[in-house]
């Protein structure tokens, strides 16, 4: 009887999440060429991005809970410490319960790159590449590439210039952008697949030889669009992380090749 009740409770919990959470649809993004802040190896910063799909919102606590229920080896306390640090899902009440600090509709944070990657694999998807993420993030609500507009930049900076530590808003609380993608700015930082490929030096002013630069060895020196502080900060944040780190302001969303069905 007791066991039955427990099973029912879990069942309600899971169906409850399903009931209240809107499906996190994959949105089609038509590819194109754009100028990235980070030049490709070889130097040119004009980057071609193919068609792809990306989730319309960051993955939520509710969605991630379903994932760990189905994949117990990714539960807090069980996940291998090579893949997560000791703050992994720390705001959750327990390994399989969210509790008051982690709303089902809030973006999941304190997840490592490994965990985010495993989640996306479970969705038959992957993390977006930096260029894919940057391409989508260039939009505002009316233009695909709004980066020249001072309002775009100031909006982003205004969010960055508020302190962290407050409860995060639910996903989709702000209007969608040009691609019908939500919360690409203004809610959390997001993991990207190749986050460690563009090692911006921890020292923004460091200069190195060309071989040392990888993609962008020297923030201020090789970074294109130096005035684009909003994106520069994003790059700096990602380059501060290692794949097992979990941080209160870092979440993720998944992407998929165009034409690949679930």
């Amino acid at each position: 009887m007791r066991k039955l009740a427990y099973t029912v409770a879990v069942g309600i919990l899971i169906s409850g999440c399903a009931q209240y959470s809107q499906a996190n649809e994959f949105v089609h993004i038509p590819g194109g060429e754009f100028r990235s802040v980070i030049p490709e190896a070889g130097g040119d910063n004009l980057v071609a991005v193919g068609d792809f799909l990306v989730q319309e919102a960051p993955v939520t606590n509710g969605e991630f809970l379903q994932f760990v229920l189905h994949n117990p080896n990714w539960q807090r306390g069980t996940a291998v410490s090579l893949f997560v640090d000791d703050q992994y899902l720390f705001s959750w009440a327990g390994p399989i319960s969210l509790g008051p600090q982690a709303g089902a509709q809030q973006p999941v944070t304190q997840v490592s790159w490994f965990a985010a990657n495993a989640y996306c694999e479970s969705q038959n998807a992957r993390l977006p590449s930096w260029y894919e993420w940057e391409y989508v993030a260039a939009a505002d609500d009316s233009e695909a590439d709004a980066r020249e507009r001072p309002e775009w930049r100031q909006n982003i900076l205004s969010w960055y210039s508020r302190t962290g530590g407050e409860a995060l808003a639910d996903v989709r609380s702000s209007p969608a952008n040009y691609y019908q993608v939500f919360d690409i700015h203004g809610l959390v930082w997001e993991w990207v697949d190749d986050f460690n490929a563009f090692l911006v030096s921890g020292d923004n002013r460091e200069q190195g030889g060309a071989d040392q630069l990888q993609f962008c060895g020297a923030g201020a020196i090789t970074m294109e669009e130096k005035e684009n502080y909003a994106v520069l900060m994003r790059v700096a944040m990602l380059s501060a992380l290692e794949a097992r780190y979990t941080t209160r302001n870092v979440g993720f969303r998944c992407a998929r090749q165009s034409g690949l069905m679930q």
Binding site: S201, G202, R205, M237, A240, T247, R248
Partner: peptide, 13 residues
């Protein structure tokens, strides 16, 4: 080099 900057680069938490 960097006056300690590279060695002290620290993510939140």
């Amino acid at each position: 080099p960097g006056g300690g900057a590279t060695s002290s680069f620290t993510a939140p938490g």
